[in-house]
Design a protein around this nucleic acid. Structure first.
Length: 111
DNA sequence: CGTCTGACGCACG
DNA sequence: GCGTGCGCCAGAC
């Protein structure tokens, strides 16, 4: 991780580290890679991650509001919700219930 | 090289 | 509490 990996590679590594049943936010990941203001880039990388060979749990990444902002990117707007529910999360109005409690901080793992 | 856009985030009204 | 605007960084045109 010390190498100057591309912004996307950084994001992918963090997202892949997200434990099942846990969630994370764009801003949090952005901060973890050293770009606290690059939340938009994280989301962008997520969209691109769907085209990567590796399976990136992009559905575990939500905005700071805990909303499924990128559900549409999965091809089917319900896909992201189903994936999250399959991991024991409850979705209401495109938002994760008790999302903050399920939030996972990448900074802890990188510490 | 200038401009627009984007799975965001925050400040303001 | 909600809508709007701006900043943020990187890529596409």
């Amino acid at each position: 991780m010390e190498a100057k990996n591309d912004f996307f590679d950084r994001v992918y590594e963090i997202v892949k580290l997200i434990p099942e049943g846990k969630l994370c936010t764009y801003g949090l990941i952005a901060k973890a890679i050293g770009l606290p203001s690059g939340a938009r880039m994280v989301g962008w990388a997520m969209n691109k991650s769907l085209y990567q060979k590796e399976s990136i749990p992009a559905h575990r990444v939500l905005n700071r509001n805990g909303l499924l902002t990128g559900k549409q990117a999965f091809g089917n707007p319900f896909m992201m919700q189903e994936l999250l529910e399959a991991e024991g999360h409850h979705i209401v109005n495109d938002g994760v219930v008790d999302f903050e409690s399920k939030l996972w901080n990448p900074l802890i793992e990188l510490d």
